[in-house]
Amino acid sequence: MPDKAIIAENLTRKFGDFTAVDQVSFDVEKGEIFGFLGANGAGKTTAIRILTGLLAPTSGKAFVAGLNVYTEMEKIKKSIGYMSQKFSLYDDLTVRENIRFYGGIYGLPRSILKQKTDEIIEIVGLGDAVNKRVASLPLGWKQKLAFSVSILHNPDIVFLDEPTSGVDPITRRQFWEMIYEASENGITIFVTTHYLDEAEYCDRVSIMVDGRIDALDTPAGLKKTFNADSIEEVFIRLARKEVWDERYQS
């Protein structure tokens, strides 16, 4: 599996009778910004949780950083970063303590840790807030901080699960600048979102509807295929088609 950051083949996850991820196949190139679009409940988070080793797949194959998710998950964990939908830094620790903790867990040497801490303070624009407890930070800062922590150990791939939900438009823009910067540093970005304008920022976009990937292409390619002006239009058509199918084919 050379040169691919992620490979999924017929990846499936069932919860009882419900199939959250249904025979999904896709590749993510190294260094790519890969957008994973879908409505709430479409299966995006489930897919991300399988690829990050938080959830076991029911069937199908998946390789992350060239390693098998069934057998080499603990090795994979060294090369991935993850920012969950739920804010998951420690609220009762300060910014500096959180960075130190996660850096320590990933085994970063002290000197690099210090340098990284300074970098993050600079990038996120924390300034004096570095010694404040994370609980007291505004959401936008929290999200930028969580992203910085998720790439602290310079992973090959970072998984971002709706990183910008609930964040104001200016912070969203800043957040995407951070994503671009990480991408320029060679980190593959796997990002889920339901803000369809954000899809335009991605190299390639997949659209997930009811556990399946219905479309996968560059933003321009998708618009061309569906003869649409925006990704939003593409998305609505795909979602409508779903409703149409349900009504008239079953």
Binding site: F87, S88, L89
Partner: peptide, 13 residues
């Protein structure tokens, strides 16, 4: 409950 355990579970700990 607060979800921090997931952040730990994706590390090689």
């Amino acid at each position: 409950e607060i979800g921090t355990i997931e952040q730990l579970n994706v590390t090689p700990i």
